Computed example of a mutant assay.
Amino acid sequence: MTEKFDYSLIDKILEAHESSSTAVIAILQDIQEHYRYLPREIFPYLSKKLRVPQARIYSVATFYENFSLNPKGKFVIKVCDGTACHVRKSIPILDRLRSELALSDKKVTTDDLGFTVETVSCLGACGLAPVLTVNDKVYPAMTPDKASELVAALKEEL
């Protein structure tokens, strides 16, 4: 995927954090919020601007699970597989989503970058299980059929 990166946007993010090497996590969060992932092209740029070894920035980006080095879809669907959700059958929901979007545990994002489907250990909404989120909006008491309806509605927004 070839994309032009707006380094002026990154410069604004750096400026907001006073180009502080102690703000690497916050800077990466702001960059990911814009691109929905951390483009590899930014690491040498950040290294130069922050005067920090590129390996250190990369190690932060790969240590924290919330950071992604791979492009994510417009709609990021997180299926909870914590105990409460698992017991209430979250896996059939995950299987349905993967089936409908031609995804797997290895391929988590559609080719058109419309959808990303991930599992998470817990979404903190156990009383509403099984739960999934779409771009952090919670959808409680899900079923495979409700998940299919949700995907159909989201496809209309692409």
Rank of each mutant, 00 (worst) to 15 (best):
I77F: 12
L50K: 10
H34K: 14
K89L: 14
L38N: 02
E41H: 12
K78S: 12
R98E: 07
E33T: 04
R96N: 04
R36H: 08
D81T: 10
K106G: 00
H34D: 07
I93D: 05
C80H: 08
S20E: 06
L94Y: 07
S8G: 13
Q29I: 10
A61Y: 05
R36W: 07
Y45P: 03
L69A: 03
T62M: 13
K72F: 05
K48D: 14
V87F: 14
S104R: 06
V60N: 04
T22I: 10
I57K: 01
V108M: 06
I25E: 01
E18D: 02
R88L: 13
P53A: 09
T22M: 14
I31C: 04
H34G: 05
K107M: 04
L9Y: 12
K48W: 10
I93C: 05
S104L: 09
K74H: 15
S59C: 05
S68P: 03
K74N: 13
I27E: 01
Q32G: 02
F67I: 01
D105K: 03
Q54W: 00
Y45H: 08
T83E: 14
E65T: 14
K72G: 04
R51K: 15
K48S: 11
V76A: 05
K72T: 02
L94E: 03
F43K: 02
E33V: 02
S59L: 13
F43R: 03
R36G: 08
A26E: 02
A55F: 09
D6C: 11
Y35N: 12
K78Q: 14
T22E: 15
V52H: 04
D11N: 10
L46T: 05
T22Q: 14
L28A: 00
Q29C: 06
A55Q: 10
H86G: 06
V24F: 01
I10R: 02
L14Q: 07
V52R: 11
D105T: 04
Y37V: 12
K12M: 08
K78T: 12
A26Y: 00
P44S: 12
D81G: 07
Y35F: 15
D81V: 15
E41L: 11
P39T: 10
D11H: 09
E18L: 00
E18C: 00
S21F: 08
T110W: 12
T110Q: 06
S8A: 14
P71N: 09
A84Q: 15
L69G: 11
K48Q: 15
V87G: 10
I42L: 06
I57L: 08
K107G: 00
F43G: 01
S59I: 07
F63G: 11
V60R: 07
C80R: 04
A23W: 00
D95L: 06
V87P: 12
V108K: 13
E33H: 06
H34L: 08
Q32Y: 04
S68A: 09
L28I: 02
V87S: 15
Y37R: 10
R51Y: 10
I27L: 05
V52N: 09
A84Y: 05
V52A: 11
F67R: 02
Y7R: 12
R51Q: 14
V52P: 01
E41M: 11
H17N: 07
R96S: 09
